[in-house]
Write a protein that binds this DNA or RNA. Structure first.
Length: 614
DNA sequence: ATTAGGG
DNA sequence: CCCTAAT
């Protein structure tokens, strides 16, 4: 991987210390494969040599650019995404915000104007900005444009940067330019600009005026705006020979990115790597979206619009489903001899669904039943195989959980009660996991965390083992086999199925992030990568959850006035920011259903009127 | 096996 | 979540 800085404003050395030089540069190469520009922090020392940020610096960057703000918010949602730093969610989902932005970049340039109405929320503590840092564009591989002394950079590079540079070459940047930016000619130095000029730039950048006088603020915003558009919809434009060209062959963007998941990347370590990996994912997504596959049309921003206009995505038509039948029903129909009832699970007795089976007896057969002691209810249930799906349960601990009043049960209840204080609770592990996993670290091979006494719950090790062909993978398999559907009293009186795990916020976050990377629909991928640690949550679950999120995001927005909507929200209310992102992603991927879109537009207009951003 | 959708 | 149908 090479650091190509095509254009960097380097004048005004005396002010280097607090300059906010932005390199809006896009490297070009002979190869046609497109890659988004990868930004990386670096500092410029006196002689103009670029020093990749140190580890600590990178941390700082994370804090600043990823955690603290960078929420892109459509201004029709003045609720603004986590404008405050103390919002816990803000912190928690910041990484995703970062990725989220990536997605925004897929906008068709023609729509960029509107899009750029999006507010770059920079309500971060500017004081935290280390002025020494500058954003330097960096393209992957493709050694050329040696405007910067490569070796110099390398020598000075922080060791941690090293691995990142081994990154497989995806090469070449094809960045798109927002029309207005062409006039920027690829480089600007905001520091030289007066407030007035900044205003002009701002206008050019966002297509609107601002009255804000704060230089810092302006610079910040503009820089963000530029960043967003620079490596934006990489599928439409390319920068070549300092000229913005329309990219006619979208296919070019497709590439062999796939391989990146495995190989060197996984083995790499360090923050920088993780960051790179993150970007890599983005690249991958681009591949999906701009590649010649079917996904192209629905996802590629370029086709986005036309496609929307056309008949909405043709849903997969499906034959009217012969629904499974209720027990009572089956009884009455049993004379046909066509049915054998199977109890799927018990415990919550209500969960007695019957499925049709083709292996049938011609004559009515007495229903064999047996006592079901599971829920302690003693209900008689048809005695057929208690089919279980998923992996066979092998863990003794799991079995313990079946004792209605036994130790296992007690343990479970205790666990429930503690809810968060018990170190072994799933959620704790969940959260733990999340904290340790910044979005950018995602792809790193899940490290085996100390498998101590918690092992029985360590769903993580399970997956790790799967991946690393390490024999004994199923040992801790599922504690939550679906036989386990017992009901557990919840605080609010209700009874909830034991293993209906409410979605954790971090899970939701991961999901959103995943969708942003792979696109909705790539659920197995998302499952594999983002939810590697969650043995529960099947890809179907992800899909379902996403569906819900989608619904929620569009439903909640119009009424967003009501401060957080104090409704019965029995389940974890999904923070607005998340919903916003969900909505965005959905929009971007043309996953928006017509009616919902209507809602959206309505609210859009209304809010547009009100929102006086800037 | 994975994905989309309906319940 | 669960289930089926489509791919």
């Amino acid at each position: 991987m090479e650091a190509n800085v095509v254009a960097v404003e380097e004048e005004d050395r005396n002010e280097l210390e607090d300059s906010s030089v932005i390199a809006v540069a896009c490297s070009v190469s002979s190869k046609e494969i497109a890659d988004p520009v990868v930004y990386k922090l670096a500092r410029v020392v006196g002689d103009g040599i670029y020093i990749p940020a140190t580890d600590d610096d990178m941390k700082a960057e994370d804090l600043i650019d990823h955690k603290s703000s960078l929420h892109l918010v459509l201004d029709n949602n003045q609720t603004a995404v986590g404008s405050s730093n103390d919002d816990p969610f803000d912190q928690e989902f910041a990484p995703i915000d970062c990725e989220f932005e990536e997605l925004l970049k897929f906008e068709d340039p023609s729509t960029q104007g509107e899009r750029s109405e999006a507010v770059v929320d920079t309500s971060i503590d500017l004081g935290k900005l280390n002025p020494k840092f500058e954003e330097v564009t960096r393209s992957e591989s493709t050694p050329l444009d040696g405007q910067i002394d490569q070796s110099g950079v390398r020598k000075l590079a922080d060791p941690l940067v090293g691995p990142a540079e081994n990154e497989p070459s995806t090469s070449n940047v094809c960045a798109s330019w927002k029309p207005d930016f062409s006039m920027l000619k690829g480089e600007i130095c905001l520091d030289n600009l007066s407030v007035r000029e900044l205003h002009a730039t701002f206008e050019a950048t966002f297509g609107r005026e601002t009255s804000v006088k704060d230089k810092q603020w302006l610079k910040r915003r503009i820089s963000m705006g530029l960043c967003n558009s620079c490596d934006g919809s990489a599928t439409t434009f390319i920068i070549e020979n300092s000229k913005v060209k329309r990219k006619d062959n979208v296919e070019d963007c497709n590439s062999e990115d796939k391989s990146h998941n495995k190989d060197p990347v996984t083995g790499l370590e360090g923050r920088n790597v993780s960051e790179l990996v993150g970007h890599n994912q983005t690249i991958q997504m681009e591949g999906h979206f701009s590649g010649g596959s079917k996904t192209l049309q629905s996802a590629s921003p370029k086709h986005h619009i036309a496609f929307e206009d056309d008949n909405q995505r043709n849903k997969r038509v499906r034959k009217p489903t012969k629904r499974y039948i209720e027990v009572s029903e089956s009884d009455s129909q049993e004379h046909s001899g066509r049915l054998v009832s199977a109890v799927k699970s018990s415990g919550s007795g209500s969960r007695t669904r019957v499925r049709p089976v083709h292996n049938i007896q011609p004559v009515r057969k007495p229903l064999v039943t047996r006592q079901d002691s599971l829920g302690g209810s003693g209900v008689e249930i048809p005695y057929v195989s208690r089919i279980r799906r998923g992996r066979p349960r092998e863990n003794v601990m799991a079995l313990m959980n079946f004792q209605p009043c036994g130790v296992g049960m007690t343990a479970e209840l205790v666990k429930e009660a503690h809810d968060g204080h018990n170190p072994q609770s799933d959620e704790d592990i969940e959260n733990q996991e999340h904290k340790a996993t910044t979005a950018t670290e995602w792809l790193q091979h899940p490290l085996i965390k100390e498998s101590g006494e918690n092992e029985q719950y360590s769903e993580q090790s399970e997956d790790v083992n799967i991946n690393s062909d390490d024999g004994h993978m199923d040992s801790y398999a599922d504690i939550d086999s679906d036989d386990n559907i017992l009901t557990v009293p919840t605080a609010k009186g209700g009874m909830r199925r034991k293993h209906h795990r409410p979605w954790t916020l971090s899970e939701v976050a991961k999901l959103v992030e995943g969708v942003s990377r792979y696109g909705a629909g790539k659920w197995s991928e998302i499952k594999k990568i983002a939810f590697a640690a969650c043995s529960h949550r099947t890809s179907v679950d992800l899909k379902d959850k996403w569906r819900n999120l989608l619904r929620a995001s569009f439903a909640q927005l119009p009424a967003e006035k009501g401060v957080q909507n104090f409704k019965k929200q029995s389940s974890t209310p999904i923070p607005a920011p998340i919903l916003l992102r969900v909505r965005e992603l959905a929009e971007m991927q043309s996953q928006v259903s017509p009616d919902l879109k209507a809602v959206k537009f309505a609210s859009n207009n209304i809010n547009d009127m009100k929102s006086g951003f800037l």
